[in-house]
Design a protein around this nucleic acid. Structure first.
Length: 689
RNA sequence: GGGGACGUAGCUCAAUUGGGAGAGCACCGCCUUUGCAAGGCGGGGGUUGUGGGUUCGAUCCCCAUCGUCUCCA
C-alpha cells in the first residue's frame, strides 16, 4: 500500500481433504483435488489507483462523500464517523442492488439480510445525529456510479428509494417505541439504586422490540450507567439456541430417495394434457424406508409411492399437488397430496384395498374436477400478473403465489395499498381477457430464446437450459411449469376477494375463479335474501333497515337500567332496618341484572349514610348477588367482600370484590330467602365487630 | 422454519389480586375569546381482534385462530 502496509489481494486455496468427525483421524482424501482462486476486485483497484482503502476507489469514494454530505459531516477517514459513513455507503449500495432485484426487506432469509443492512445503516446515521430518513436519498448516486456496467439500476431508483424510506420510517418508529420502555427500565434501575443495564433486559428489548443494544449503551452512558455486554451476549446466545432448536424436519428423508436416484433418473410427468395414465411402481416409501410391497390397509401415517410415469402434478411453482387414486386389479391407493423432490413425483396417501407391489402397473387417475379448478386458477394468475403490471407499473412483479382449486393467492411487490377503483379496473381487465377467450399455449424452448421473446422471469428462480413458456396471445408470456386451461374463456369468472399487505413492500391479492366464484355469489345472495326475509323488507332496503334496528336496540339498552333500578329506592330505604345507627337494606329485586343492582346501590349510598346494601335476584336459573357499603363502614373495617362471600355459600356459589362493592353468584334459586336471612345476620355481626 | 411481545374509543395509550371499561388528543354542541398546541362547560363514540374453555363473574387466566411488531436460522 502507499503507506507501506501490506494487504492481501489474491489467494489460492488447495483443496485436497474431506474433513469429517473429530481429529486427529478426520481427514480423508477427496476423489479429485482442485485449486480455488480468488482475487478481490476492489482491493486490486485500490492498489492500481494508489489509494489506501477499497472505499476510496473511483466507484466508491463519491458515494462515501455523498453519504457524508447527506449526514452533514465532513468525511474524516480516521474518525468513528468516518467508519460509520463507510459502512452506510457499503450497505446502501448493497441494498440498492438487492431491492432493484426485488429482494425487499423482510423477516426471513435474504430479505432479512437486506432489512438488517438497512437498519444497521440507519443506526449509524442516528448515532451521527440523523433523526429523519436519509438513506433513501442515496440510490440515485449508486445508480450513477454503476451506470456503465448496470444501466438498469437507474430505472428503479425511485421504487428503491420508496422501499428504503419506508423501512427507515418503520425502524425509527421502532426506536421511538423502545424509548418509552427504556424510560421505564432506567426508572427501575434508579429505584433499585443500580448503575448498570442488565444484559438480559437489553436482550429482551432487542429480541422482542428490536431496540438496538448499541443505542441503549449510548443512552446508558448519558445517564452514567454501565452496559453489560457480556450478559447481553449470553442472553442472545440462549435466544439463538432456542430459535435454532426447532429445526424443520425434512418430510422425506434424503435416504430412500437417494437410493432411488442411483437407479432411476426421475419420474416423467405426462399430465399436461391427460388426467389418467398407466405407470409402473418404482418406489414405495413407508416410515422413511424403501419397501417391496405395501399390504397393511388402514395405516395412520401416509405412505409415499413413486411411479416411472404419472399424470399427477407435484406441488411446485405455487400450484398445489394433485389428488386422486392409483388403481390396479384388486387394489386402490388414495392420493391425498403430491409432492416433487429430486426429480421424483411423490404420491402421498393411504392404501385402501389390496396389496401394492414394487414393479406392478397401476392406473393413475387425477381428480379431474379439482385439476380443472387448478388450471383455471393458475391461468388466472397469469392474467392477473399482466393486469397488475399494466395498472401499477413494471415493478409489480410476482413475489410468490399459491394456486389451489379455483382459489389463488398472488403476492407481488408494490409499496402501498391499492385503492378500490384501481382494484376494480384490474379485476375488469382480467375478466375482459377471459371473455376474449384467448388461446393458451405452452411450448419448450431454449432459455435464451425465451428471454429474447420477452418472457416474464422471476428473480431468484433457477431456470434450466430448456424452459416451458406459457403464452396467452398478446397478453402474457411467462416461464411456468404449471397446468393451464386451453383457452382463457374456460376460466369463467375471476373475482378478487381480498387485497392486503404481507410484509413491507409486498401486497397480496386473493381471488376465486370458476365454480368457486359462482358459489361465492350464490352464498352471498342467499345470506342477503335470508337477512331480507328476517327483516321482512326487500333486499335493497336491508342496509337502512338494519341501521334503524341497531339504533333502536341501542336506545333500548340505554333505557333499560333506569327502568330496572325503578325497583324504587324509596321503597327499599323505607324497608331498611336500623342496626346500631346504620341503615341495612337486604332485598330481592326479582331480576338478575348486576349492572342495575350496582346502580341501585349507588343511588342508595347517595341517599343515606352510613348504609349497607345487599341485593339479590335470579335469572335463567342463576342467582346474582351484589353488596355495597358506604365509605364510613369501609373505614371501620367492614368489607362488602367478606359479607357477600358468606351469603353466596347459602345459594351454592362464590364471590368477592372490593371492600366497598362486591359481587357473587350461585345456582340455588330457591334458597334466596334463606340467603337474605343469612345476610341480615352476618351484617349485624360485622357491624358489631 | 423457530423464539418473544402486542391487539381496549377515530389516534396514542391506562385499567392494582379476576370484581362498576377510563384518560389525553381528535370529533360535535354551547359559552368565552381576535390568532401561534387557545380556554371553560357539556356531549357522542366500545361485541376489549375473532372463536372456544375455566369461573358466580374474564380486558385480565388457559386453548385455538387471525393480524401487527421483533429477533434468530
Amino acid at each position: 500500500m502507499p503507506d507501506g502496509s501490506e494487504v492481501e489481494i489474491w489467494n489460492l486455496v488447495f483443496t485436497q481433504f474431506n474433513r469429517g468427525g473429530p481429529p486427529p483421524d478426520n481427514l480423508s482424501p477427496l476423489p479429485s483435488r482442485n485449486i480455488d482462486t480468488g482475487m478481490g476486485l476492489e482491493r486490486t483497484c485500490a492498489m492500481l489507483q494508489g489509494v489506501d482503502s477499497n472505499f476510496h476507489i473511483d466507484i466508491l469514494r463519491p458515494l462515501v462523500e455523498a453519504v457524508a454530505e447527506v449526514c452533514g459531516r465532513a468525511y474524516d477517514p480516521a474518525s468513528d464517523d468516518g467508519r460509520r459513513i463507510r459502512r452506510i455507503a457499503d450497505h446502501v449500495r448493497a441494498c440498492t442492488f438487492a431491492i432493484h432485484e426485488n429482494v425487499l426487506p423482510g423477516n426471513n432469509e435474504e430479505k432479512y439480510v437486506v432489512k438488517r443492512l438497512l437498519r444497521r445503516a440507519v443506526l449509524d446515521g442516528r448515532q451521527m445525529g440523523m433523526r429523519e430518513p436519509f438513506l433513501h436519498k442515496l440510490p440515485p448516486m449508486v445508480a450513477e456510479l454503476m451506470r456503465r456496467p448496470y444501466p438498469e439500476l437507474a430505472t428503479t431508483t425511485e421504487h428503491v428509494g420508496t422501499v428504503i424510506e419506508r423501512e427507515e420510517e418503520s425502524f425509527l418508529a421502532t426506536i421511538d417505541g423502545g424509548l418509552d420502555r427504556i424510560e421505564k427500565l432506567f426508572a427501575a434501575i434508579g429505584k433499585a439504586g443500580g448503575s448498570r443495564v442488565a444484559g438480559e433486559d437489553a436482550a429482551e428489548l432487542y429480541t422482542t422490540y428490536g431496540f438496538p443494544p448499541e443505542l441503549l449503551e449510548t443512552i446508558a452512558a448519558e445517564r452514567n450507567c454501565d452496559f453489560d455486554w457480556e450478559g447481553f451476549r449470553a442472553a442472545m446466545e440462549a435466544h439463538g439456541q432456542r430459535s435454532g432448536a426447532g429445526r424443520s424436519v425434512e418430510v422425506f428423508a434424503s435416504g430412500p430417495l437417494d437410493a432411488l436416484k442411483k437407479t432411476l433418473h426421475g419420474s416423467d410427468f405426462v399430465g399436461y394434457d391427460a388426467t389418467e395414465a398407466e405407470g409402473k411402481v418404482v418406489g414405495i416409501i413407508a416410515q422413511d424406508a424403501l419397501c417391496d410391497s405395501l399390504t397393511e390397509v388402514g395405516h395412520a401415517t401416509p405412505v409415499t409411492v413413486v411411479l416411472d410415469e404419472t399424470p399427477f402434478y407435484g406441488e411446485s411453482g405455487g400450484q398445489v399437488g394433485d389428488t386422486g387414486v392409483l388403481e390396479w386389479p384388486g387394489g386402490r391407493f388414495d392420493v391425498i397430496d403430491t409432492q416433487r423432490e429430486g426429480g421424483f413425483v411423490l404420491h402421498v396417501g393411504h392404501l385402501r384395498e389390496g396389496t401394492l407391489d414394487l414393479g406392478g402397473t397401476v392406473t393413475a387417475r387425477v381428480d379431474a374436477a379439482r385439476r380443472a379448478g387448478l388450471r383455471r386458477a393458475h391461468s388466472a394468475t397469469h392474467l392477473l400478473h399482466a393486469a397488475l403490471q399494466h395498472y401499477l407499473g413494471s415493478h409489480a412483479v410476482q413475489q410468490g403465489s399459491k394456486v389451489d382449486a379455483d382459489l389463488l393467492r398472488f403476492d407481488f411487490s408494490h409499496a402501498s395499498s391499492i385503492d378500490a377503483e384501481t382494484l376494480g379496473q384490474i379485476e375488469g381487465m382480467v375478466n375482459e381477457r377471459v371473455l376474449e377467450a384467448l388461446p393458451v399455449a405452452a411450448r419448450l424452448l431454449p432459455l435464451a430464446e425465451a428471454r429474447h421473446e420477452g418472457a416474464m422471469m422471476l428473480f431468484g428462480e433457477k431456470y434450466p437450459d430448456v424452459v416451458r413458456m406459457v403464452t396467452m396471445d398478446g397478453v402474457s408470456r411467462e416461464l411456468c411449469g404449471g397446468t393451464h386451461v386451453a383457452s382463457t374463456g374456460q376460466i369463467g369468472l375471476v373475482r378478487i376477494v381480498g387485497e392486503e399487505s404481507v410484509s413491507a413492500g409486498t401486497r397480496r391479492i386473493t381471488a376465486v375463479t370458476g365454480q368457486r366464484a359462482l358459489e361465492r355469489f350464490r352464498e352471498a345472495e342467499a345470506s342477503l335474501a335470508a337477512a331480507a326475509g328476517t327483516l321482512k323488507v326487500p333486499v335493497g332496503d336491508v342496509p337502512q333497515r338494519l341501521t334503524a334496528v341497531l339504533k333502536e336496540l341501542k336506545d333500548l339498552k340505554k333505557a333499560k337500567p333506569a327502568a330496572a333500578a325503578a325497583a324504587s329506592p324509596e321503597e327499599l330505604l323505607a324497608a331498611a332496618a336500623d342496626v346500631a345507627g346504620t341503615r341495612v337494606v337486604v332485598a330481592d329485586i326479582g331480576s338478575g341484572d348486576a349492572a342495575a343492582m350496582r346502580q341501585a346501590i349507588d343511588l342508595l349510598r347517595r341517599k343515606a349514610s352510613p348504609i349497607a346494601v345487599l341485593l339479590a335476584g335470579a335469572e335463567g336459573g342463576k342467582v346474582t348477588l351484589v353488596a355495597g357499603i358506604s365509605k364510613e363502614l369501609e373505614a371501620r373495617g367492614v368489607s362488602a367482600g367478606s359479607w357477600i362471600r358468606d351469603v353466596a355459600t347459602v345459594v351454592g356459589g362464590k364471590g368477592g370484590g372490593r371492600p366497598d362493592m362486591a359481587q357473587a353468584g350461585g345456582k340455588l334459586v330457591e334458597k334466596i330467602p334463606e340467603a337474605l336471612a343469612e345476610a341480615r345476620r352476618r351484617i349485624e355481626q360485622l357491624l358489631a365487630g
